[in-house]
């Protein structure tokens, strides 16, 4: 602990952590309700996860194992930096393994590996208010939540169908929590919405710039909004992961060269690596691995 003597545990002072924990508890008590909190300045810019970091800092303990992902990846700048930050200021164990993590801070994805009871998923949220783009007045949106006036949310979906023939919203797809509050699940792909429904893990959402915290307790109903004649459906991919051949997972497009070459790979890097370690091979997987002898890599 000597190397972090200049910092309080997990960076925030105890008063701040208690204030944030109170907000979190209130959020858990009222699933989907946006609790205002006194967001602090963090040693990182807004938009880089200041809300998620404050939530994580307030719940993390010395025995926790932290995983941080950015759009599913453990190895991008944001994920690496935040992981390093907590390693430094809280001296906690870090991991990329979804199953062994106790706290997973995420930017815009839910891991493919099913979460279990006792795990906490912390979302970084840029704009917590799902009604914001249709109703700019905060006083009015708060009233709409209070009075459960959610017709406007369907106006947004209506506009999608009118313009595109289908609900074209693919991320930040609005959900109704426990039959009461409409909530923005943060800009996760709608592919992940079904994973939120009755999840055994606790899901916490922190918006640093907007100073809001909200929560979905374990085993809570999370239902994506839709129309009877345009029901909610998730994205499907017409090919498996190019590296690990996984199907029914969320894929990212990766550009390979300047000639239009590209491939679709798992957005969840941990999931992909585990599958490859288990011998699964996609059609573009490098054949350096012993299990890939009989695979023909494409050029």
């Amino acid at each position: 602990m000597t190397d972090i003597a200049t910092y309080n545990f997990a960076y925030l002072d105890e008063q701040t952590k208690r204030m944030i924990r109170r907000a979190i508890l209130k959020g858990i008590a009222i699933p989907g309700y946006q609790v205002p909190f006194a967001s602090r300045e963090m040693p990182m810019p807004y938009g880089w996860g200041t809300g998620g970091v404050q939530v994580t800092a307030s719940i993390i303990g010395p025995d926790d194992v932290l995983k941080v992902i950015d759009q599913g990846a453990d190895d991008t700048t944001n994920a690496v930096s935040i992981r390093a930050f907590f390693k430094k200021v809280a001296n906690v164990a870090v991991t990329t393994d979804t199953a062994t993590a106790t706290i997973i801070q995420t930017r815009h994805r839910i891991p493919e590996h099913p979460l279990t009871a006792g795990q906490v998923l912390v979302f970084q949220v840029p704009i917590p208010e799902p009604l914001r783009f249709l109703e700019p007045r905060e006083t009015e949106t708060r009233k709409m939540h209070a009075l459960e006036e959610y017709g406007l949310m369907h106006v947004k979906l209506y506009e999608d169908i009118a313009k595109h023939g289908r609900i074209a919203t693919t991320y930040a797809y609005p959900v109704k929590v426990e039959g009461r509050y409409v909530m923005d699940p943060s800009p996760t792909p709608k592919f992940d919405n079904p994973k939120m429904h009755r999840s055994p893990a606790l899901q916490l959402f922190g918006a640093g710039r907007e100073k809001r915290i909200y929560a979905v307790p374990p085993f809570t109903d999370v239902v994506s909004l839709d129309f009877e004649d345009h029901p909610f459906e998730v994205q499907t991919f017409d090919q498996p992961c190019a590296l690990c051949a996984a199907e029914n997972v969320y894929l990212d497009e990766v550009i390979l060269d300047d000639h239009g070459g590209h491939m679709f790979v798992c957005s969840d890097t941990d999931h992909c690596e585990k599958r490859r370690a288990d011998g699964h091979r996609g059609h573009l997987a490098p054949d350096t691995h012993p299990a890939s002898e009989n695979m023909e890599p494409a050029q």
Partner: peptide, 27 residues
């Protein structure tokens, strides 16, 4: 009016507000 949503949605909003959830009928 909501100036940034379509005429159809402007008319349909009240219907959706009272629980209509059938796009075809609203339209």
């Amino acid at each position: 009016l909501r100036m940034t949503v379509s005429a159809g949605a402007n008319v349909g909003e009240r219907l959706m507000a009272v629980g209509d959830r059938h796009y075809g009928k609203i339209r």
